[in-house]
Every structure is written in C-alpha cells, then in structure tokens.
Amino acid sequence: MNAFRLAGDMTHLLSIILLLLKIRATKSCAGISLKTQELYVIVFMSRYLDLFRTYYSLYNSLMKIIFLGTSMCIVWYMRSHKVVRQTYNNDEDTFRHFFLVLPCFVLALLVHRNFTFIEILWTFSLYLESVAILPQLVLLQKSSNIDNLTGTYVFLLGAYRGLYLFNWVYRFFTENHRVRWIPWLSGLIQTAIYTDFFYYYIRSWKNREKLKLPA
C-alpha cells in the first residue's frame, strides 16, 4: 500500500471520527445531511458485499467493517437518538435520494465490466459515492451557520477521494499498467464536485473567517 492510499483511508476514517465526535459531544447533528449519510450506508453495503466472500487483508476487512458500522451508527443517531434527532435540519435537507440512486443504478446496468450481481453493485456503489455528497453540499449552502466540525468533516471527506486519485496514478505507473475507467472517472467527478467547497473552506481558514458558502 502506498502513502497516498494510506493517507486517503486515514482522511476518510478521520472524517467519520470527527462526525461521530461532533454528534456525541454536542448531542447535535445540525448541518449534517441525513440524505448523504443514508446514501453512504447504501454505498458501503453495495460495495462491501465481498467482505465475507473474498479476503484481501486484515486491514481491508477491518476498514470495511468500520465504514459499515459507523455509517449505520450515524444514521441511527440522526433518526432514532431522542436528543440528536431533534437537532436534524429536516426542512432544509430536501434533496431526494431517488434522483441519485436511480440514475446511478441504471448507469451501472449500462456501463460496467462484467454483468454479474457483485460487479454491478460494486459499479453502482462507485457511481453513487461520487454524487452522495450533493445533499450535504446543498444543505451547507442553505445554512447560515456552519460549525467548524461540520466544515472540517466535509473537507476531509472530499480530500479522501482526491488522495485516492494520486494513489491510482502511482499504482498505474508502479504496478501493471491497466486503465480502470470506472473508479478513476467516478473518483475524478467525486473530487471535482468538492472544488467549490474546497475553495471556500481554505479561504475561510486562511482569513480566519467563519465558513459560508454562497447560495
């Protein structure tokens, strides 16, 4: 495993830890999109189906279990925890899952490598992950008061796939040369969606101002 991949995974892990920390410490999920969190549960469930079928490494299995467990835990907090759920921005989190899930599934049926159950779901998970942040970004645009933890959570979540892009370039040149269009293009689109957010996040950090996204 190269440094970019490890850094990407750690950034991803850190973003989740940060979100759980925010929820547990402040008993609040204000500014967090339940739609995005539910999409992540779908992403991980469809991608990690191979968890009990193919063994890669202890690291790999552990991370999959952590991502599955924490994503479901976050959704549970937001939907069912008696204090946390009351802080959820129900009225502003208006993006429909359906408009992302359906097109991604149809695209996975059309564009894939092998027409097998596992492969279609794996492809679907990559397409869906690339756009899963959209409800969260829409919610942030509507929020007048984005707290630091939420801003940093989204930043780390975006940075993770960006680091994977470097990992893919590195692997392309150091391991056998094979083009992997589906993950590469999905990852590129995923990172590109964050571009605007990155710009405003870094600017607010440099100027020590509160993060605010233009509507």
């Binding site: 191979d50 193919t54 790999n60 994977y164 990992n167 692997r171 094979r178």
Partner: peptide
Amino acid sequence: NPTHKPKDEL
C-alpha cells in the same frame, strides 16, 4: 498482459 486488479481498495 495486464491482469485485472483485485478490488483491494476501499
């Protein structure tokens, strides 16, 4: 001939 890489990423 390049082989298909296993899905060892997350």
